[in-house]
Simulated assay, not measured.
Amino acid sequence: MKKQICIIDYKLGNLFSVNQALINIGLDVVISSDKETILNADALVLPGVGAFGDAMNHLRNLDLIGPIKNAVTSNKPLLGICLGLQLLFSESEEFGLVKGLDIIKGKVTKFTSINLEGNKIKIPQIGWNNISPLEDKNWENTPLQNITKEEYLYFVHSYYIVPEENVGLSVTNYDGHKYVSSILKNNIFACQFHPEKSGKVGLQIYNDWALTNNLK
């Protein structure tokens, strides 16, 4: 029997494209905001596009914060994408200080409009950028295990994570702003880039996330 992957529907996110990508790699996928469905799933995907505060309000109003935290503590695989990555952190500076899920210690902050060389940069970052291993991190046996260093993936964001824990897996440089672009902590893998918008490379990441978590 196939394991079921639940994409959490909290009324903000690129649900269709993520759903199609996961189906394309052979997973059994359901999109749901039902607590029981989420609790009974074998793995969860937390996508997201939009404002951090709105997302937290939706999660709270749908009573989904408890099920997400329950999944993490019960060691179910959790994949966070873009805003879904940011929501895992303690707080965000977007439109004032907003508390996050606090599953991972750290904050979410905005790109500054001037880089280290004093030049203006375009915000948000929209388009292709590369990722590379963070310091001495090894991508073996991770969802990035088949990705070459400096591989390009698709980004759309104005804010980025600043972890207080040693969870960074990859880094990206956007016009002089070097930031953590994916994280791995136990059963949690999350990325700032959009694998579902990154062609074959993105599908490879989804597939290796499933394989490294015994979902296939």
Rank of each mutant, 00 (worst) to 15 (best):
I103N: 00
K200I: 14
L134D: 15
I123C: 01
G53Y: 11
K3S: 10
V162M: 12
K137L: 01
H177G: 05
I38V: 13
V108E: 06
V171P: 01
G100K: 03
T73M: 04
S132A: 13
N138R: 09
V162T: 11
L27S: 11
S198K: 14
I5K: 03
D208L: 08
C82T: 09
P163V: 04
N19R: 13
C191M: 15
S74F: 03
V180K: 03
L169F: 14
K185Q: 11
S92G: 14
I31V: 08
S170Y: 10
P67G: 02
F155K: 03
A51I: 09
K178S: 09
F89C: 00
M1H: 08
I114W: 10
A210S: 12
Q192F: 06
Q20W: 03
S182N: 12
S181P: 10
P163N: 10
N138G: 02
E196T: 06
A41I: 11
I183E: 04
L85Y: 08
D175S: 11
K216W: 07
H58V: 06
N166C: 04
Q125V: 02
L144H: 11
A55V: 06
E151S: 14
F16P: 00
V171K: 15
G66W: 07
L101M: 06
Q204E: 12
H58I: 10
K35H: 06
Y159G: 01
T73W: 12
F111K: 03
Q20E: 15
Y179L: 15
A190V: 03
I161Y: 01
D34H: 12
I38T: 05
D136G: 02
S90L: 01
L44A: 08
N129S: 10
S92W: 07
N213Q: 07
L184N: 13
L64W: 02
Y179Q: 00
G96V: 13
K178Q: 09
E165G: 00
S113T: 02
N213H: 13
E135Y: 15
I114L: 15
H157L: 02
N130Y: 12
Y160T: 02
V29W: 15
P195I: 11
L44H: 06
V72G: 00
L22D: 03
T212W: 01
C82E: 07
P195A: 11
E36Q: 13
F95V: 03
G48H: 02
V162C: 09
Q204A: 13
G84T: 03
N186E: 15
D102C: 13
F111H: 02
I121W: 05
K120Y: 14
I23G: 01
S74W: 00
T148C: 09
N173Y: 13
S90G: 01
L39Q: 07
L211E: 07
L12E: 03
P77G: 04
N129A: 15
L184V: 10
G53E: 09
K197C: 04
G96M: 07
D54L: 14
D9V: 06
G84H: 05
L88C: 07
D28M: 10
R60N: 11
I68C: 10
V98M: 01
G48W: 05
I81T: 08
I126V: 12
D175T: 11
S17D: 03
V201Y: 01
I31Y: 07
K3W: 11
L44E: 12
L184T: 07
S181L: 06
L22Y: 07
P143W: 12
I65E: 09
N24T: 08
I7Y: 05
N70P: 00
E36G: 06
I38Q: 11
I123D: 03
